[in-house]
Design a protein around this nucleic acid. Structure first.
Lengths: 99, 99
DNA sequence: ACAACGCATAGAAGAATGTCAATATATTTT
DNA sequence: AAAATATATTGACATTCTTCTATGCGTTGT
């Protein structure tokens, strides 16, 4: 049993919770601090912090500390990696993002 | 809180377990019956059945019954849908598969 | 008809995950 | 220096998920 598959599963866990999906959708509009996200999602601050850690550990989101705030944004590299992995495990050809 | 996000999360749960990743990789080679998969993965038959149900419910895999066998294969439409959703929630442009 | 085979389902146990209240830490403001 | 603010961490609890054994159900072969 390849540990590689466990690694892949861990990355996709970023997308397995409705609150994390919600966060990602909010981050599409651009970088936001935790308190901004907290205004829009019906969870407590520690719960949000927990989800942000999972998103950051999966490298789907990048944190940036500035003073007492932490700003979060989508991580293009991590997102690209997730898309590549999804292509790999489903055998459909991967199309690199054209920007 | 949009129930839509829960739906998306459910689809990505297909990719959140190492055994399911393993199954998907095996199915890249083409349609396989449950007993074939069982030969290659170190889990019991009911556990495999459980995982196949999750993959089928997420529409990532399609079952085909033939006699006493059930053959499984990747579902191109479901896979494409998952890729599109991943693009949507991460704002990176989706590239339709060219085949 | 009966036994064997392939897979699904039920139910239980343990592990992992999501959630919260309480608290800690770091920064800014007064 | 003290209070206020923003976020992280801890610890507890509930829910969900993974896995197993036991069993059921449909199909095939004798």
């Amino acid at each position: 049993m390849d540990t590689n598959e466990k690694r892949i599963a861990t990355i996709f866990k970023a997308f397995c919770d409705e609150n994390r999906i919600h966060v990602l959708k909010l981050l599409i509009a651009g970088e936001k601090c935790a308190c901004d996200l907290l205004d829009e999602i019906k969870i407590t601050q520690p719960t949000l912090s927990h989800h942000m850690k999972i998103l950051c550990d999966a490298e789907i989101v990048i944190p940036r500390k500035e003073g007492k705030w932490t700003y979060y944004s989508l991580n293009p590299d991590g997102v690209e990696k997730a898309k590549r992995l999804l292509s790999e495990i489903t055998q459909l050809q991967h199309q690199p993002t054209q920007n």
